[in-house]
Simulated assay, not measured.
Amino acid sequence: MRFVRFSLAGLLALALTACHSNSSSETAKAPAATSAAPAVGPKPGATSGKKRLLFFGNSLTAGYGVEPDQAFPGLIGQKIDSLQLDYEVVNAGLSGETTAGGLSRVGWVLRQPVAVFVLELGGNDGLRGLPLASTRRNLQGIIDTVRRRSPKAQIVLAGMQIPPNLGAKYAADFKAIYQDLATQNNLVLIPFLLQGVGGDRSLNQADGIHPTPAGHRIVARTVWTVLQPLLPNYITRRPSRFTSSRSSSRLR
C-alpha cells in the first residue's frame, strides 16, 4: 500500500494540556519531528503516478496513540488498495496542530498537486478557546491555498464539535464554522468527524480525546461514506468494510 505518513509528533492528551502545548507547531513551515517514526510508503516528494488523496489535520489524523495502519487515514488507504483505485493516501497530520499552524505549513505540503484534500483542523483551537474569527479566517486561508495550488482538487472539510466547557454559545458558534465554510466555498462536508466515537469511553484512549483502533475504524467508515462518491472507478458492488491489519474485527 502506498501510504505516506509525514509526522507523529507528541500531542495533547487533555484539554488542559492543549492550552499549554508548545506553540512551535503553529509556526512550523514543515511537519516537525519527522524522525519520531519512519515514513510508511514512499518518501515525501516521491512520485508514484497515482492521484494524491491528502489528509491534513492534527493528532486525530496523525493517529496519536495508535499504529499508522490503525489510524483512519491508514484504514482508508487499505480500503483504496483493496479496491485497486488509482490513489495514493498521504497522511499530513501533525499532532498539536492549530488552524494557524496549518495555514503556515499548507503551502509546503502542497508542493505536489492533490486530487482530494481532506481538511481536519480546528479542534485544538476550540479546546484552547481561541477566537472563533481567527479559526474561521485560518481555515478559509487553507482552503484558498489549496484552490490556488491544486485548482481541480476536491476539498473535504471535516466538521468538529467541542464540549460546552467555554459556554454553550462558543461551542455552538464553533460547530457552525464548518457548515458555513462548506456552504460558502462549495465544499464536501463531513458533519462531525467523531460521530459515534466522541464521548464514548470504550472507543477512546484514556485521555478521552483520541480514538482507540476500534474508534478509528468507526471514523474511517464515516469518512469513507463521504469520500466514496468522489473517487472515480469506485466499484459499488464491493462491500464497504474496514479491516485493521492488527485486528480481525470489521465495521459494516
Rank of each mutant, 00 (worst) to 15 (best):
P164Q: 08
Q184W: 05
R201H: 13
S248T: 13
A220V: 07
G167W: 10
F55H: 03
Q112P: 09
A46K: 07
T99C: 01
G65M: 04
T225P: 01
L193F: 05
A62G: 01
A36Q: 15
G126Y: 09
P163E: 11
N233V: 10
A13P: 15
I162L: 03
N138R: 04
D207M: 10
G10A: 15
P163S: 08
I218Q: 00
C19I: 13
Q84R: 15
A220Y: 04
H210G: 11
V90I: 12
L54I: 04
D86K: 15
G123K: 04
L230Q: 07
S25M: 02
A32V: 13
V89T: 10
E67I: 10
T47L: 09
R137K: 09
G77T: 14
K29D: 12
A176V: 03
R147V: 08
S245C: 06
L85Q: 15
G126N: 11
L85M: 15
V146T: 09
P42M: 09
D86S: 15
G101M: 07
K79C: 07
L121K: 03
A92S: 06
P31K: 07
G129E: 12
H216K: 08
G101Q: 09
L94R: 06
L119T: 07
G141N: 09
L194V: 01
F242W: 00
D86F: 14
S24H: 09
D125M: 05
P73A: 08
L8G: 06
N58M: 00
G93E: 06
L193R: 02
A62K: 01
A46Q: 06
T183Q: 08
W108K: 02
S82T: 14
Q184K: 05
P239Q: 10
I235V: 14
D125A: 04
A46G: 04
F242Q: 01
G77A: 14
T27L: 05
P113C: 14
N138V: 05
A32C: 13
G215V: 03
Q195H: 08
A33V: 14
Q140P: 04
S23Y: 12
Y170M: 00
A92F: 06
R246Q: 05
I209E: 13
L194F: 05
G101L: 07
T183I: 07
I76R: 12
A33K: 14
I190V: 10
R237N: 13
F56C: 01
I209N: 12
A28S: 09
S247C: 05
N58F: 00
L54P: 01
R148D: 10
T135A: 02
E88C: 10
L14K: 15
P211R: 07
L8V: 12
L127D: 14
M1L: 12
Q195Y: 07
G107F: 00
N185P: 00
R201P: 07
P232V: 12
G45K: 09
A115I: 13
N91D: 11
G45I: 07
D207P: 07
A158V: 02
K43S: 10
S48V: 11
I76E: 11
L194I: 03
S24A: 09
E97Q: 04
A158L: 03
L139F: 05
F192E: 08
T17A: 13
Q78K: 14
